[in-house]
């Protein structure tokens, strides 16, 4: 953690308040994500983890507070500035969010085609490089998303998120709905890519195995507040939910190995 603290903050959330449908999801949250670290965000269902992610990437307007990403206030960006920011991050949505009417290779090429002037032949090569980096077989390139399994769709979504070599990667429940073996492979993939591309990763997850395998620090969203720590430190947290999460039956089983 000391090494991470020395690095500059890539995401800085200050005093974030989110009120949705009369419920307070976030009550003055402060959160910093440092360069080249993997931060996992956990919390119960409906605790506002995904809303926090959506707020940071500008899909959700916060009720109060400021969110800075790569040194710029997200709320102040519009038009070209916002596009320039969006090129610098990649987002993997829960089920990949691939465009169903285009092949996997075309999906990966969409950001390249929109934001760069790479010639078509090189674009095809880059797409297949990205697809093999996320561990998809070469014949997946010509398939449509509906022909892929859930795990492969997530990998393809990750390839699209990484198309422009972003500095920052957002993952929304990357292992949800995957069998344990695929989930473990996906964890390893995220870790490998994070190292080789030196990504900063902001990951929302439920999966305690994923937390153990990939994250440097963990932010727990409970009772509309955030507690930050590592697995070891959160185990002894006085909050009953956090304690139960990390020291309960599933938590112990996952962390014992």
């Amino acid at each position: 953690m000391s090494a991470a603290a020395a690095a500059p903050a890539v995401i800085r959330v200050q005093g974030l308040v989110t009120r949705l449908g009369g419920r307070v999801l976030h009550d003055h949250i402060d959160l910093e994500v440092f360069q080249s670290e993997v931060l996992g965000v956990v919390g119960g269902s409906g605790s506002g983890k995904s809303v926090l992610l959506r707020s940071i990437i500008g899909l959700q307007q916060p009720t109060a507070g400021t969110i800075e990403v790569l040194g710029q206030n997200i709320a102040d960006l519009d038009g070209d500035e916002l596009v320039r920011m969006q090129i610098r991050w990649g987002v993997l949505f829960q089920d990949g969010a691939l465009f169903g009417d285009q092949t996997v290779a075309e999906n990966v090429q969409i950001p390249l085609r929109e934001h760069t002037d790479v010639p078509q032949q090189l674009m095809d090569e880059v797409a297949s490089v990205k697809l093999s980096m996320v561990g998809l077989p070469p014949d997946a390139a010509g398939k449509y998303p509906a022909e892929l399994s859930g795990g492969m769709r997530k990998r393809a979504g990750l390839a699209r998120a990484l198309a422009l070599d972003p500095e920052l990667l957002f993952l929304d429940e990357p292992t949800a709905g995957l069998d344990p073996i695929s989930a473990a492979q996906f964890d390893e993939l995220v870790r490998d890519l994070q190292r080789s591309l030196r990504l900063t990763v902001f990951m929302v997850t439920h999966d305690i195995d994923t937390l153990r395998a990939t994250t440097d620090r963990i932010a727990v969203l409970v009772d509309s507040r955030i507690t930050i720590g590592t697995i070891a430190s959160l185990r002894d947290d006085p909050n009953p939910w956090i304690h139960e999460y990390f020291a309960g039956v599933r938590g112990r089983a996952a962390l014992a190995t």
Binding site: E125, S132, M133, S196
Partner: peptide
């Protein structure tokens, strides 16, 4: 990573 992962010829 790229050297080891991208071995297969493009389809």
């Amino acid at each position: 990573t790229i050297d080891t992962e991208c071995r297969a010829p493009a389809v």
